[in-house]
Amino acid sequence: MTTLTERYVDEVARYLPQDRQDDIRDELHGLITETVESRTHQSQDHQVAEHQVLTEMGEPAQLAASYTDRSMTLIGPRLYRSYISLLKVLPGTVVPLFTVGYAVLELTDGRDFTDILASSALVGLNLGAQLFTLVTVVFVILDRTDRTPDAKWSPSQLPKNRPASTKDAKPGRAATAWLGLSIAVQVAVFILIVWQHRAAPYTLDDGSQVPVLEPELFSGWIWPILTGLAAVIILDVLRAAGRTWTIRFAAIYTVAQGLFFLPLAWVFSQQLIFDQRFLDHFNNHGWHTPDEFYTGIALILIIWFCWTTFDQFRTSRQADHR
């Protein structure tokens, strides 16, 4: 018959990594047996002594955790506040934006109103659940891996001015909200780019469905753009989690932004961005999109990229010198 000690040791081993189970199991069994024996020699009843020793050893899961140094919390106090702030901002912006956008597109397709209401609610719920999972997974990984000194808090992160009312007396609240909003917009853009390609949501007069962006992009230019955008989103999440600007971080950020902005500017300048069928239908009142529109957008993208790069390096140099 299995003894209480064996059942206890089995339960501890269940929470341990496979390669360490046998070793710890033998050692723990030895310790408990010897402690119980010593107490039995002091004329204590064996069963009472065993029960007492196991009670002293504590809950098996907790003992196993102390062996592995594994965190017993999903997201620790270092990242908890950023996590909650981001969770509040993201579903509060991306989900309604995307759901309303989806509903409007469906409405232009002339679908039944109640149908649209139901499918939009489903799309919103689905997106909300996916965002929640994604943010949680990223923060759980960050909490277990990011131990660099960059993540340390420094007094330079304090807001420059005291908040006007004590109600808003949380440091960096406005900055986090702004960053959260920017992440939300980027995630929405990412989802929209992929979604419009897969769903081809634009309906032409003959009832055929076309995407908004040129499908050819998906066998070339869109990939650096999407990779850059994804990298910027991840780096912004890191910033929301407390990472401050350093020269190295600014350099990585610039590469990510360059990957996004430069091919995008090129695609605009070459007028390769929109699907021709969509454009013809959209401009069917004889209006022609002027060349200057594309050149202008490409120029704005390049100027925006240069300005943000300059600003990031300036901020990171100031932070490094502080």
């Binding site: 710890i24 050692e27 408990i32 402690t35 020793v53 002293e56 504590g58 102390s66 062996y67």
Partner: peptide, 12 residues
Amino acid sequence: IDGNTLYPMFRR
């Protein structure tokens, strides 16, 4: 020293 802290300490 408690038995439940000794072995984890050894491991560390």
